[in-house]
């Protein structure tokens, strides 16, 4: 992957297909580090699956939604001296409180740090394909914050779907303006 934002898209796609109702994408940035967290309240994974999921060669085709995505993300973090953390609670274990949290820590000044890239496109792509799942995106930077929450947008839209191109263009414009303000 040429941009970390593509890894985020790939990881969050898993959350969308895991029967989640809410997927949160959290980016926390300091001058030296970037932490990327994708948290969902989906069906979760078994302990066995959690162990195997970071190994590209153990993934079987029946688990088709989880393939090379997590190993790529892990590699991108580790090659900067950072790490990947993965926690998951399967709905079979906890019917009330289940889901998956994947978090990568990246050292931004490392030579092998992959640039974040076009994260606005990633968020728009996720919202385009999210169906009924809600998405929260929050990017905290040393000098400001960019945020969107589809629950608020849906409340405004009534029964007009988020996937309508005109709506997506508004979301894109809104995020770009927030970034422009932070980088002002």
């Amino acid at each position: 992957m040429k941009e970390l934002s593509l890894n985020i898209l790939d990881i969050a796609q898993n959350s969308l297909t895991a029967k989640s109702t809410l997927v949160e994408i959290l980016l926390e940035e300091t001058d030296e580090t970037l932490r990327i967290t994708v948290r969902d309240n989906g069906c979760g994974m078994s302990e066995d699956m959690v162990r195997r999921v970071t190994d590209p060669f153990c993934t079987s085709r029946t688990t088709r939604k989880v393939g090379l995505g997590i190993p790529f993300f892990k590699l991108a973090a580790e090659q900067t001296g950072g790490r990947l953390e993965l926690e998951s609670v399967s709905q079979d274990v906890s019917p009330e409180n289940h889901g998956t949290v994947i978090s990568g820590l990246f050292y931004k000044n490392h030579l092998d740090f992959t640039p974040l890239g076009d994260v606005v496109s990633t968020v728009c792509t996720l919202i385009q394909g999210c169906g009924g799942v809600d998405i929260v995106f929050r990017h905290t930077m040393p000098n400001g914050e960019v945020e969107t929450d589809t629950r608020e947008i849906r409340a405004m839209l009534g029964d007009i779907p988020l996937s309508e191109p005109e709506i997506l263009m508004w979301i894109r414009g809104n995020l770009e303006e927030q970034y422009a303000e932070v980088n002002h």
Binding site: M1, L9, Q128, E164, P165
Partner: peptide, 28 residues
């Protein structure tokens, strides 16, 4: 196609171009 293979090959800008063009050309 937006799986790992598609994303790493450049599917995201392709998808976004379709979304934009459909909106801009009034084809929705």
């Amino acid at each position: 196609g937006m799986a790992t293979c598609g994303i790493s090959a450049g599917a995201r800008p392709v998808l976004n171009t379709f979304v934009e063009e459909v909106a801009n050309q009034g084809l929705s």
